[in-house]
Design a binder for these strands. Structure first.
Lengths: 139, 139
DNA sequence: TATTGTTATACTCTATAACTATA
DNA sequence: TATAGTTATAGAGTATAACAATA
């Protein structure tokens, strides 16, 4: 039917997965991935454990445990929701923000090293590709 | 210093990680990721548990266990290396090949759906970007 | 003696089931 | 009665340490 598109899809998928893997493996992380994802989720606006469990596709008890661990390390604060006593509201501590920032910086620094020898033209291609991909997977 | 490059690196990284995540979450997989990685590793030429442990950045005992599980499910065969009695040589069974193929097909099918509405121009951009990225991370 | 792979044991992350508190 | 979150318990996956077999 449409083999060209399948080939493209495969190439794009492989490239994205390899980049992700290298970023994960080769850059410094102070925390395991599931904890970082939660910090990132909160920084992106998630407020409750339930929201985060849905977003991370993880069970509610798993998220409880992860959040408890983050709270133990003083990276996240839990406070009761004044409007709904069943809920709790999550915020990043200063330490949590810093941990997240330094992880992002380390990952970006890895990517910068990979991209710094590219021509201006190649950089434009990558920037456009990033935009196209984010648009394509958000539809 | 070079903020433009940092911004580009961040955008590219985010796009790749989101694509990877969506592929993992939204496509059908018959096996957990670590098992699939091993099947893929063997299909790409890895021959021994040690090679795979290095490639996957996993301990030797973990790899032993994963391979044992794959052998139990008749997806991989272990046979003694005739030239070195300490080693064992791994091969995919027919069932292992099929499992890998169907997973790849499912992932590519997910990507095809995401990309099928793109213009020819956008597709060219993605193809070039995939090439650029693979080259950049292999240096 | 060094290397390849496995077994023994323990820790982490995850899940389902059961529980508490609130709506 | 339903919902948000936690606690109890168990099942994967991983790691380090100790071991067996071969180089």
């Amino acid at each position: 039917m449409n083999d060209d598109l399948t080939v493209l899809a495969n190439n794009v998928r492989i490239a994205c997965q390899r980049v992700s893997r290298r970023v994960r493996y080769d850059s410094q992380t102070a925390l395991p991935p599931h904890m970082l994802s939660v910090l990132f989720g909160i920084s992106m606006g998630a407020k409750t454990p339930g929201e985060l469990a849905d977003a991370e596709r993880v069970s509610a008890p798993s998220m409880s445990k992860t959040i408890a661990a983050l709270a133990d390390q003083n990276l996240v604060t839990r406070s009761p929701d004044p409007n709904d006593g069943r809920r709790c509201l999550l915020t990043l501590t200063e330490e949590g923000k810093q941990t997240l920032e330094s992880t992002i910086a380390s990952r970006d620094s890895y990517m910068v090293q990979r991209l710094e020898d590219l021509s201006p033209d190649d950089r434009r291609v990558l920037q456009r590709a990033a935009d196209i991909l984010l648009e394509a997977i958000s539809r």
